Amino acid sequence: MVQQDTGARALIGLDGAALGRLMPMHLCLDAAGSIRQAGPTLERIAGASLAGRPFSEVFVLRRPAAASDLAGLLALAGRRLKLTLTAAPSLALKGLVEGLPDGGALIDISMGISLIEAVNRFDLTLRDFSPTDLAVELLYLYESKSVVSAELRRLAQRLNGARVSAEHEAATDTLTGLANRRRLDATLARLLAQGRAFALMQIDLDYFKQVNDSHGHAVGDAVLREVAHLLRGHCRNQDLVARVGGDEFVMLIVDIVEPFRLARIAERLIRQIEEPIHVGMIDCNVSASIGVSIFSRQDDPDARRLMREADAALYESKGSGRARVTVYAAATASAGDPDAA
């Protein structure tokens, strides 16, 4: 708080409260160099009352020169001082000193470029500054900038969220929530570019047309959603399952390229898909035919070739009686390996 000093009133013509309002960061020193009055903002930053303490104990004069006593300080009258509080040495302050008739001194202190740091560090408000102080204008600008910056950040987050949502929707099958052809093509291209081994499993539902014809498209859609749920349950984080047509699905299975393992995975899928799917009071029975192609690191990274091979293997499964899996090429013979994991 501002100290009510009768000497200061006589010398300056203002009581301590008025001087504190006009110069919230002032100091009045007596002839011995001790602080007899301090502005309220200065005391708030210092964290304690400064009255009665020697100036040299509370402040460190950095430039233009060290002053060991009040006479040395008064010799710097009219010159800009750079000083710090011993209680807050990282906070750079500026000052201007003038002598008083009784041999003491009046020092007006400001924060300069330390203003924002001090405001944040000591929770200063507009009440801690003189209304005519340039710091008030700077605080208004700082607050305005903070508000605008915060709003821009919120806007950017909303736009980014909308972009991510739009990208997700553009790559998602609306009926099943699986990836669509666009995302499948992008993932396939990425895996080929990385040279990562994987299998492409093409899945076509058997007897699905009969479900649609007998019970209608609403029931058919429910069956597709349930099949999508089953397929998603067989996918790891690195795998992908996509719906690419009415009742056509594709799975990309990463790092598994042994034909017998892929055949076992496909056989489990077929068994699960063949379980009756209940839609209300209706039991729907479908199955699946599956064709598999394999990409190894030594192969030519040709997405169209892989799709053709999977199509050819699927065609063979369909032609062999449906509800079957065919792994493309001679490796198909390994599909029944009894040691499969």
Results as ranks from 00 to 15, higher is better:
72 G>M: 00
188 L>V: 08
285 N>E: 15
48 A>Y: 06
328 Y>P: 03
168 H>I: 05
213 D>A: 12
309 E>M: 10
208 F>D: 10
12 I>Y: 11
73 L>P: 02
103 G>H: 09
209 K>E: 02
239 D>C: 08
98 E>L: 11
315 Y>N: 08
238 Q>L: 09
32 A>M: 06
197 A>W: 00
44 R>D: 07
174 T>Y: 06
214 S>A: 15
266 A>S: 15
250 V>W: 02
290 I>V: 13
45 I>Q: 05
222 A>C: 09
330 A>W: 10
336 G>R: 14
72 G>E: 06
201 M>Y: 02
207 Y>I: 03
255 D>H: 06
299 D>K: 04
329 A>Y: 05
301 P>E: 00
124 L>H: 04
265 I>V: 15
84 T>V: 14
187 T>I: 03
71 A>F: 01
36 R>M: 02
173 D>S: 10
220 G>I: 06
15 D>H: 11
60 V>R: 14
169 E>I: 11
284 C>M: 04
85 L>Y: 04
285 N>M: 11
272 Q>H: 14
235 C>G: 01
61 L>T: 04
67 A>K: 03
95 G>T: 06
264 R>F: 09
186 A>H: 06
40 P>K: 00
123 D>Q: 15
22 L>I: 14
8 A>V: 15
319 G>H: 15
72 G>R: 06
290 I>N: 11
180 N>A: 03
320 S>F: 06
98 E>V: 15
244 V>N: 03
185 D>Y: 01
284 C>V: 09
207 Y>L: 08
